[in-house]
């Protein structure tokens, strides 16, 4: 027979183990509730909810050959508000002098006022913090061949299951005028290698795209700036509107045309054509919208 103290000790151990087991089970099963309790009673609580809902809106056809990309960095608002322009002097001139608005102030001063309006409206640097936003502007130039547009809403789904593009085949306005081939043999030439001379007529080079490169926070080394989406939109549009005039003076289109010619020439020479010539540029086929 086991002595009484020894039995008590065994019973104590069993009870301890049972309590531990019950506690462990409670901790495992009640974990979500414990977390919720902990979150509700935590002295400092922080939560962020982010939701996205993305829908495909439309699919469009393009026909643009990009041959040159000019990329530059700009600082809003300081690039548009140089210290040598005085706001007070500018406003005084507008108040007291007679004449049309565009005659009284220069383009730089107009940009200054527009930038100042944006800064004031959106409270940028309102606490004398000196906030700024660094944006990369990308201007692409090349040749626009087409303006065809395809709206996915007009597409019949039943047809789409069999053929993704049933209703409208891609339309191009590039025809016989772009490339003319001459050979001493039969016409049309039998092969590219039998072509003696190719005459290429390219449309004039145009700005094919102007865009503000999206900010990737992981690679953006400057301080954060408090901006609403609306403020960002207005700043980006302000910068983009001034991008085209800024780069056109740098001979971008001429350079884009030259690059395009060199590439097309190389392509045709690689194809076996003996000589490539370029006819004077024709009328623009399409003036693209800047995006």
């Amino acid at each position: 027979m086991t002595p009484r103290p020894a039995r008590r000790a065994t019973l104590g151990r069993v009870i301890t183990i049972l309590i531990l087991l019950v506690l462990a089970a409670a901790m495992i099963l009640g974990r979500p509730y414990l977390r919720r309790l902990q979150r509700a009673t935590a002295p400092i609580r922080s939560e962020r909810v982010v939701a996205h809902d993305i829908l495909l809106q439309e699919m469009r056809d393009l026909a643009r050959l990009h041959t040159l990309e000019y990329r530059y960095r700009t600082v809003f608002p300081f690039d548009y508000m140089p210290p040598e322009i005085s706001l007070n002097a500018l406003l005084a001139r507008l108040r007291h002098e007679e004449g049309r608005y565009h005659e009284l102030i220069s383009i730089e001063e107009r940009d200054y006022l527009a930038a100042y309006t944006l800064v004031d409206r959106h409270g940028i640097g309102s606490r004398n913090v000196g906030e700024f936003l660094v944006l990369d502007v990308v201007v692409s130039a090349g040749f626009a061949f087409d303006s065809s547009h395809y709206d996915i809403d007009r597409c019949d789904n039943d047809h789409y299951d069999h053929d993704p593009y049933p209703d409208e085949p891609p339309r191009t306005e590039v025809g016989a005028e772009l490339l003319r081939l001459e050979s001493s043999g039969p016409h049309p030439p039998q092969t590219a290698a039998s072509v003696e001379r190719a005459t290429v007529t390219l449309p004039p080079a145009v700005i094919t795209q102007v865009r503000i490169e999206d900010i990737d926070p992981e690679r953006y080394p400057y301080p954060e700036i408090a901006l609403t989406p609306q403020a960002y939109r207005e700043i980006a549009e302000f910068v983009r509107e001034r991008a085209t005039t800024r780069v056109l003076g740098r001979g971008l289109l001429r350079q884009a045309e030259l690059s395009g010619r060199q590439m097309i020439e190389q392509l045709l020479l690689d194809a076996g054509i003996e000589r490539v010539e370029f006819a004077p540029a024709g009328e623009p086929l399409y003036t693209p919208q800047h995006h």
Partner: peptide, 16 residues
């Protein structure tokens, strides 16, 4: 300034 030889022929627009 960078030279490219890219032919852009289609795009989609997605609304978020």
């Amino acid at each position: 300034l960078e030279t490219l030889f890219e032919l852009h022929t289609a795009e989609t627009v997605h609304r978020d």
